[in-house]
Amino acid sequence: MVLLGITAAMLFFVWRYRLKRNPLASNIEGNAMMEIVWTALPTALVMVMFWYGWAGYQSSRSVPPDAMPVKVTARMWSWMFEYANGKVHHELFVPLDKPVKLILASQDVNHSLYIPAVRIKQDCIPGRESYLWFRPTKLETYDIQCAEFCGTEHSNMLSKVRVVSASDFETWYNTIEPVDENSGERLVQIYGCLSCHTTDGGKKVGPSFKGIYGERQTVLVRRREMNIDVDDEYLLESMREPNAKIVKGYPPNQMPSQEGILSDEQMTAIVKYIQELK
């Protein structure tokens, strides 16, 4: 609107007072009244805009008391959602019409949880907690994207919000998959390993899991090359202390340590899974 007005006035003046038609310019030095008007009016206008922005924002900050808390962990380059009963998943399942409070944290660098469909985002800053809430109103699937630059796979740091009916949610919520020797495949998905590793031999930021078990591999220990056999012990160490041995040709400091994140059983399950990926 304002833009149209300015542009129209500009074009009109350029045409109306063109050199040919108006060879004699008038020297109007200014007009105090006009200055006051076009300072005051926009001021009023922007104050209204400010107020609407503020009001909208405030409601996005006041979480309803009945909101369901979900802990969100952002890390290069995946999301993890942890529910009150300990259930962990890489996608966000929420029941229809129930407010959700997302408690945000980051394991490494800054990220930002962004759900375009509900028009909200909030940064995940390492060492700080922040939050966000929303109320899913349609049985739909929304995209989750990362909105704060976080490195190589930033644009692939995607997930989904899956809005399901209350009863479906109940069933999903209460099925807690046991950790046994067959859960490796699920764990590497949920714990974000697949944002850096593939299971089909393809190269990403890290080496593929496929076909490494039992092979000889060149690794760097404090920048010195060494040959080792990939066995259970090596794989467990790779997860606990990734920087101890760096696979040749791959960057150090990328692989996050899984100490304290994955339990011993989970790590063993993953080792078994890698072993089976021939």
Partner: peptide, 30 residues
Amino acid sequence: FSLLTFFVAIPSGVKVFNWVATLYKGSIDL
């Protein structure tokens, strides 16, 4: 910070209005 951000827009607006007003009754050589 949001409030002040809106305030800082006003002087820019004032400039734009004054520029457009300068075209008024000029003899414009485009």
